[in-house]
């Protein structure tokens, strides 16, 4: 009696987690992201355009999930991402360019360099430059040096400079490992009046900081600033 009542519940739990893990193919992730991302909802503008997502935006969650879904699929994602570099949808090209960096080494530098030379959107160019550099090896040095002379955007030029300074040192493996181990259920987990979600991060000087180490000792002012990645 008891087992027959328990069985359907157990099966349900298994099938839900099964759907979750093989949710989408790389191409499906990218088209799902394009559907979820509302380009018209940018707010708070200046002379350079609108720059802030609304407070109730959910597009960033789709972006985060898609990034992880694509990185989890590993090298299998590369053909879909290379194709997405040609997408009409600018935010898809930006995301594809960024994701190719996390899949280093193995994403084709040649495909990215080719796209860089025709790409109209500066943010896509910036992430292409970063991702080319994350593949490691010195082989794209000459192409990037000559691109720096043609590049019109100061921020992109700066990133070409970073790429050249890295001198062939590729992606730090711990970065993609963090993304792979990340749990999507933890998105937007902070709630006023509830325990602050714990985390561990490395400081610029290489020390580890764990939020919960301050519990029982000191209050914490946690400030999210923006900066170059």
């Amino acid at each position: 009696m008891h087992t027959s009542r328990l069985l359907p519940l157990l099966l349900l739990a298994i099938s839900v987690s099964g759907v979750e893990s093989a949710e989408r193919s790389p191409a499906e992730w990218l088209s799902w992201f394009a559907e979820q991302w509302d380009e018209s909802s940018w707010t708070a503008g200046n002379q350079r355009g609108r720059y802030m997502r609304p407070l109730d935006d959910t597009g960033w969650k789709a972006r985060m999930k898609t990034l992880q879904g694509l990185v989890s699929a590993g090298q299998e994602s590369i053909p879909a991402l290379q194709q997405a570099l040609e997408s009409e949808h600018t935010s898809t090209r930006i995301l594809a360019a960024q994701t190719l960096g996390y899949l280093a080494p193995g994403a084709s530098k040649d495909v990215m360099l080719r796209r860089l030379s025709v790409e109209k959107d500066a943010a896509t160019r910036l992430y292409l430059v970063d991702s080319i550099s994350m593949q490691g090896g010195a082989s794209s040095r000459d192409e990037l040096s000559s691109w720096r002379k043609r590049e019109s955007n100061g921020d992109v030029k700066r990133h070409v400079g970073y790429a050249l300074e890295r001198g062939g040192e590729g992606l730090d493996g711990s970065i993609s490992a963090t993304l792979l181990g990340w749990k999507r259920e933890t998105m937007a987990a902070s709630k006023l009046g509830a325990p602050a979600p714990d985390f561990v991060l490395q400081t610029v000087s290489g020390k580890s900081v764990r939020l919960s180490d301050y519990r029982g000792k000191r209050a914490v002012v946690l400030v999210f600033v923006y900066g170059d990645t």
Partner: peptide
């Protein structure tokens, strides 16, 4: 995460949180 465009990047929204000694937000 990913809520503000600045320096031609898709960056985070600036934000400030205060957590008390007991770890409550």
């Amino acid at each position: 995460a990913f809520q503000m465009r600045i320096h031609t990047e898709v960056s985070n929204r600036p934000a400030t949180f205060i957590i008390d000694r007991e770890g409550i937000l």
